[in-house]
Write a protein that binds this DNA or RNA. Structure first.
Lengths: 205, 205
DNA sequence: TGTACATCAGTGAACGCGCGTTCACTGATGTAC
DNA sequence: TGTACATCAGTGAACGCGCGTTCACTGATGTAC
C-alpha cells in the first residue's frame, strides 16, 4: 500500500485533534467537516477515507479527550512531574483553578468544557465522562484522611469543576477569578493541603 | 385588531416556553422550529408572526430562563415559601441538590443546564448568566458569618452548581446521588446550617 | 536497478436532504355604520 | 342589533441555502518482475 500506514494514521490523528479543539470550542453542530479538514490542512473529500460520519468523528474526538489518559496528559502538561502526595494534590488544585487553565479553551479539562453536551449525549459519552471524573476523585481521595476520604474527594471534585464551569460562562474576568480564588481557598483549607511543605508554597499561582 | 393582543401574547409565551424546554433538553441546533411550534400546538409558518429568527427566540428563551426572576420562580416552586434566614438557605441547598431537581431536565436551574452553551455564547447570554449566579451568591452570602461571607458564598455556589452539572453528565445514578450527598454534607458542615432549628431538620431530603 | 502496474490518500465538484424562512391564503374576530 | 369590511394570527406548501456525503479523478508511492 502506498502512503505508509503510519502516514495515514498520522493524518487521522491530525483530523481528530483538529476536531477535538474545534468541537470543544464551538460545539458539535457549529463545526463543519470543512472547518475540521481545513484546520488539519486537508480538503473536504478526504474525510471519508478516515471516518464514516461526522458523529463517528465526534465520538473519537471526545474519547481522545476523555479516555486517553486525560488526567495523565493534563497533569504532565500543567503540573511539575516530580511532586508526590499532598504536594501533588495541592499543585493539581492550583493548576486546575489557574488563570492559564481558565484561558485554555481548546485544551482544558473536558469535565469543564463538555458537561452540558455530555448530559444530552448517549451512554458511551457519559461512560467516558465518568471515567475521567473517577480519576480526578481518586487523586483527591488518596490524599485525604481516610475516615471520610471518598465523600470529601467527591465534593472537592464538584467544587473544582463547578468553579471552572461557572467562571467560563460569565463575562466578567474579575468575578471569574474571584470564584476560582474562593474555591482554591476552600479546597486547601478544608483538606489541610495548604499546610504542607511550606518551602514550595507559592509555586503555581 | 381581531384576536386580542392578550391572546397573541399568550401564544408568544407558549412558544417561548416550549422553546425553553426543548433547547434546555437538546441544545440549540438539535431543536427545529417545527419541533417548537408543534410542541406549542401550532404550525411552522406562524412562528414568524412572533419572532424574526430562530436565534432571536433562543435569546428570549434563555433570557426567560435566566433573567426573569429565576431565583424567585425556582424558589417558589421548590422551596416552602415561608422559611427565613439560615433555615431558608439550608432548604435551598437541600432542594437544589435533591433528586427531584436532578431529574427535572426541562425546568431545572439554568446554571446547571446551560454553562457549556453559554461559555460559547455571546455577551448578552453571559451577562444574563451572571445575573442569576449573583442572585444565588447573594442568598448564601446573607446567611454566612460576615468576615469572609462573600468568599464562602462564591465557593458554595460553585460547589452546588458543580455537583449538579457533574451528576447530570454521568450515566450512573448511584454515583450521581453520592456526589450530591457529599456536596450537601460539605455545604451544611462548613456553613453550620445543619445546626439550626432541629425541629425541621429532615424535611426536604 | 529500472519499468509497468496497482493501490488508495487526498482533491474538488456535485448531489440531495433538512431546516430556516417566505408567501399566498384562510377564517376568526374586531370595528364602522 | 345587524351587516360589510378590514385585519392579521395561524396554515401549509414551496423555496433555497448550507452542509454532510458521494464520486470520478489525480498522482504519489508501493510492489512485481
Amino acid at each position: 500500500m502506498r502512503y505508509s500506514a503510519e502516514r495515514k494514521q498520522e493524518t487521522r490523528e491530525r483530523i481528530i485533534n483538529s476536531a477535538r479543539r474545534l468541537f470543544n470550542r464551538r460545539g458539535f453542530a457549529e463545526v463543519t467537516i470543512d472547518d475540521i479538514m481545513q484546520h488539519a490542512g486537508l480538503t473536504r473529500g478526504g474525510f471519508y477515507r478516515h471516518f464514516d460520519t461526522k458523529e463517528q468523528l465526534y465520538s473519537h474526538a471526545i474519547r481522545q479527550f476523555l479516555c486517553m489518559s486525560a488526567r495523565e496528559r493534563w497533569q504532565r502538561e500543567h503540573v511539575d512531574g516530580c511532586a508526590k502526595g499532598t504536594e501533588l494534590a495541592r499543585m493539581i488544585v492550583n493548576a486546575y483553578l489557574s488563570q492559564e487553565h481558565f484561558e485554555d479553551r481548546d485544551g482544558s479539562c473536558p469535565l469543564i468544557t463538555l458537561p452540558s453536551d455530555v448530559a444530552r449525549g448517549g451512554k458511551a459519552v457519559k461512560g467516558a465522562f465518568r471515567t475521567v471524573l473517577n480519576k480526578m476523585v481518586e487523586v483527591f481521595e488518596a490524599n485525604l484522611p481516610p475516615h471520610d476520604a471518598r465523600e470529601a474527594a467527591l465534593s472537592l471534585t464538584a467544587l473544582c469543576v463547578g468553579a471552572m464551569v461557572v467562571s467560563r460562562a460569565i463575562d466578567d474576568a474579575g468575578l471569574a477569578a474571584e470564584i476560582r480564588a474562593a474555591a482554591r481557598v476552600q479546597v486547601l483549607r478544608t483538606t489541610g493541603w495548604d499546610r504542607v511543605s511550606q518551602d514550595s508554597a507559592q509555586d503555581v499561582l
